[in-house]
Design a binder for these strands. Structure first.
Lengths: 348, 348
DNA sequence: GTTTAGCACTCAAAAGAAAGGAGTGCTAAA
DNA sequence: TTTAGCACTCCTTTCTTTTGAGTGCTAAAC
């Protein structure tokens, strides 16, 4: 059954008032706004309660949106505005600042978002499990040590100084490098490990040791890259929100955000923006918070996620506008190629 | 003037009671403990107040240690115990766990300390400004790109894929490498920049561009390494402490710990352990907190710092014992050489 | 059939009043 | 010098009262 136009207006007004006052909304407030008497509003209130869109903290209090109310608001009632020029400018600036600073927008994405929307935020960089080693390079340093350079299929380069009991001259190294490249390049993490076994018999124990050390180093890089990484920031912002005046509640959410960040929602459909309201969150600890999460394109078909966590009384309009804009900006940046995107191994 | 033995005993008892109850301590409590009447204690209380070692929240309340009281306690009264076997075991285990995980004890040092002492903690890795590039290596990839490998004087290796408009064959690269190594290896950050100018005239514009890109990459590495890095963790632990039941107070400290971490005390005398009590902290925001900070040896004469932040009513005995043990363990580890200390460029 | 004025009613929160009790300071005696 | 005794302070707790925003319902007005 479809709600009457007036009921929608009322619901919208209640949600919006509640969002910026955090206080139950009374019939009088709404009556002034819509130009009908408070008695009429009260009748409508009662029906909206029956329908499950509003709730009453106690008999003689105003109304508060229920999760279903927020849902309807978000789906149909909310004006899906885009960012204002000022907002856009602010976000652009934040992005510029951080970009010039220490590389890796992705790593600070959470922090940026948090400062942009003023809620705690998180960022997920979903790992690439299909990554392989494109090539090995070995650069001699002195008799007993050399530099291992590993280039992965996403054109990242990492390197390490490696010492060995054996002494190597240039030709030995070249042989080892050839061996590594023919046997291990292009292989997945699992294949590399498996192959290491079969190679063991063909080599002298000493050489095998060096070889396996190198392969393990490479495997470590792939492992690291395949891991999903979740970072949260700005958790302390909740302390300024009336719903978290209760220290224990605040503590619970904060420790969840810090210690349990892996359980933050990571939607895997490709939707650009997802809103999870209160009990829609699977995770117990998020039952009376809302999460807005957006995905952006890293290139190579890979995606990153940035999310915002706040009370259900979240300013959905602003958050969605800013978060979308932020995610789109990131996508654009990766599309155009970052200053040194994919060419730089350093994070942070 | 030296305090009487009994006054010292009383002060010690008051501090210790207050540390674990967070409640003003009355004469009766102490009287039971010392076997003198409460009236006697009250007389002593009054004198200790006059001397500035105790304070009275209000007329009819018990006594609370003043900063000077804590100071005396820490300097003379506290039993400077070392960790119990159980504590040692716990810390060793924490260290082992994290060590095996993703490298860099230093980066997680703060987190480890926080979990060990149950207060917010921070870790400072003081940068090395004297670092130089030990050598450059250039590894060809294809006509227009190569891998730049930079090895710094602390034996760290970093590398980057570099593209160029120019096409390079092996001999060109060898020349460029020679150029880089003769002109820029062993130079400090500033010298490198300066030298880049003087080289500019000897090279073709295109070659100079490539050269300067490489040098800038190296300079960036040195910059990064010379920067002091402060990380804080466990800030939310304060929410469990009675002095931070007030959300605003908690918020202030937490945002300070997160956003102003650069202002956390970083003592530069070589003392292994330093305790800063309340107003002894220069920083306004730390005026009613105490900080215990220990330094550990990274090797090569470099030092790292780990610190603990808490209310002045901090459990100094436990914190100092555990923190010292932790710092000593780290020093030992770096001394013996970590699994791959100084050989691995990845952090985080 | 809506809408609205009117009114009695509810209930949380704020304000006030009273009781309780831990702790003090002071005095005077041991 | 120590301690018992006692009046006093003032925070905390509890209970009561007041207040007021907001409600639900009814009956009249549109």
């Amino acid at each position: 059954m479809e709600l009457s136009e007036r009921k929608k207006q009322i619901l919208k007004a209640v949600v919006e008032h509640y969002i910026d006052s955090a206080e139950p909304v009374g019939s009088k407030t709404i009556s002034q706004e819509l130009g009908v008497s408070s008695a009429t509003i009260r009748n409508e209130f009662a029906e909206l309660c029956d329908l499950g869109f509003l709730e009453q903290p106690h008999t003689s209090a105003g109304r508060v949106p229920s999760p279903a109310g927020y849902r309807l608001y978000v789906n149909e009632l909310m004006e899906r505005r885009s960012v204002t020029p000022q907002e856009a400018e602010g976000i652009d600036e934040t992005l510029r600042d951080k970009l010039e600073g220490v590389g890796g927008v992705m790593t600070n994405a959470g922090q940026l978002v948090s400062s942009i929307v003023n809620y705690p935020a998180y960022s997920v960089t979903s790992g690439n499990a299909a990554l392989t080693v494109e090539r090995f390079e070995l650069v001699p340093v002195d008799e007993t040590s050399f530099i291992t350079v590993v280039m992965t299929s996403d054109q990242n380069v990492k390197s390490q100084l490696q010492r060995s009991a054996l002494s190597f001259d240039a030709s030995h190294l070249a042989d080892l490098k050839h061996l590594l490249n023919t046997h291990f390049a292009g292989k997945s993490r699992a294949e590399m490990s498996a192959h290491l076994m079969s190679v063991s018999e063909q080599l002298s124990p000493e050489l095998f040791l060096v070889c396996s050390k190198t392969v393990e180093y490479a495997a470590g890089i792939l492992d690291e890259a395949s891991k999903r990484d979740v970072e949260t920031t700005g958790a302390s912002r909740i302390l300024k929100m009336p719903e978290y005046r209760d220290v224990d509640k605040a503590h619970d959410l904060m420790t969840f955000l810090v210690d349990n960040k892996e359980n933050l929602p990571v939607p895997d459909d490709g939707a650009p923006l997802k809103i999870l309201i209160g009990p829609e969150n699977v995770n117990e600890a998020l039952r009376d918070t809302s999460v807005v999460v957006a995905s952006y394109d890293i290139g190579d078909g890979m995606r990153g996620l940035v999310g915002v966590v706040g009370p259900t009384r979240m300013d959905y309009a602003t958050v969605t506008a800013r978060l979308s804009y932020f995610a789109e900006s990131l996508t654009k940046m990766f599309g155009k190629g970052l200053p040194s995107a994919g060419m730089n191994e350093e994070h942070k």
